[in-house]
Simulated assay, not measured.
Amino acid sequence: MPRAAVCREIGSPLEIVDVDLQAPKAGEVRVRLGASGVCHSDLSVTNGTLLSPLPSVLGHEGAGVVEEVGEGVTNLAPGDHVVISWVPQCGECYFCKHGQGELCEPGSAAAMSGGLLDMTSRFSAGGQPLFQMAASGTFSEETVVPAIGAVKIPGDMPLAAAALIGCGVLTGFGAAVNTADIAKGDTVAVVGCGGVGLNVIQGARHAGAERIIAVDMNDGKLQTAQKFGATDLVNASDGDPVATVMELSGGRGADVAFEVIGLADTIDQTFNMARRGGQAVLVGVPKMDVMTTIPAALGFVIMEKQIRGCWYGSSNVHQDIPKYARLYTEGKLMLDELISNEITLGGVNDALANMGSGSIARSVIKYS
């Protein structure tokens, strides 16, 4: 019987409990988790920023080994090493066929339902059903997920590093290489240098940005950002970060500015950091009632700026996960350096509480 971390109500610590896990149904696989990253989105469920049905097995950034496959699964077999995608991508719906797999219709419905593609979960405890976060539930020693939400990786890749691809890397690196239009030599600003922001930075570097301005209020995060490729560090608590970015870019502004926090004030700042004709890419997830007001004529028409939303790094997981695994093995993608702490499942509440620390990029649960 696997153990899992369950969120029962907003504002309460996660409970570590024994859970029952059904066998995979048709089109599903059972995965023995090797590792799971502790992501800010998990914290956002516990504090109500992200709406998710409860009680739920949290976790959505994981990697493991396939234990069992359901009827009709031909692309995976027991023993395969996989990264979990919290937006399963079918490849057949309108959005998948239009190059927007991150918006997959059945995958998105499953992720929001607290279940799998049939909208039901495979977890229960004490005879009572438990939802599973984002069709994943990786805060568990084992989980069942749609086969289209498990992407095969090389068997020799460390699962702790692979787990981070499942959310932080796909979201952040993908924002830079898929969502944004970064040209070689561009100046980029990244507002928010947590785990996802660090991946935006290394994605921008990979895309050819020459100057990468990291903006945060925590000096520890800024120092880490420098290790991932930031060329300039701006502590937003020392003055007006927009003015500083303007000064660093010759008064013009950044070619592309990324917001990776999800606050109204930082969204406005990010838009104002972008140059005329530039882009502001919104990566951080705000609370559902957050609004922003931008002058239509001056902001969009006369200055020809763009705002782009970014969900899951605009990723095609079936292409991008193998690509990022290859970049890691080639030494072109920093994953081990993202891991600040390796913890057991019992340490998950401390990891959530310490998420704002400047010394923590990612805590990773390792399962024995």
Rank of each mutant, 00 (worst) to 15 (best):
V245D: 00
G277C: 07
V196Q: 03
I321R: 04
S237R: 10
S85V: 07
V215Q: 03
A23G: 04
S136T: 05
S108M: 15
L335C: 08
V87F: 06
P78Q: 12
R8G: 05
S36R: 02
E210W: 06
R252Q: 03
E71C: 14
A264R: 12
P129Q: 13
I182Y: 04
T143Y: 00
I343S: 00
A214H: 01
F258W: 05
A5F: 04
F258D: 01
V215A: 01
M291T: 05
A264I: 12
Y367A: 10
G115T: 04
P129S: 12
I360F: 05
E342P: 02
K184I: 13
L117W: 12
D255L: 10
K323N: 14
G11C: 07
S36V: 11
A351P: 07
N272F: 11
V87S: 02
A351F: 02
R205I: 13
A183W: 09
V242S: 06
V31M: 02
G250S: 14
S314C: 14
T179M: 09
S52R: 15
L282F: 09
T187S: 03
L352W: 08
M157T: 09
V196R: 01
R362A: 03
S249F: 11
A225E: 06
E304Y: 06
L164A: 03
E9T: 07
A176R: 07
G79V: 13
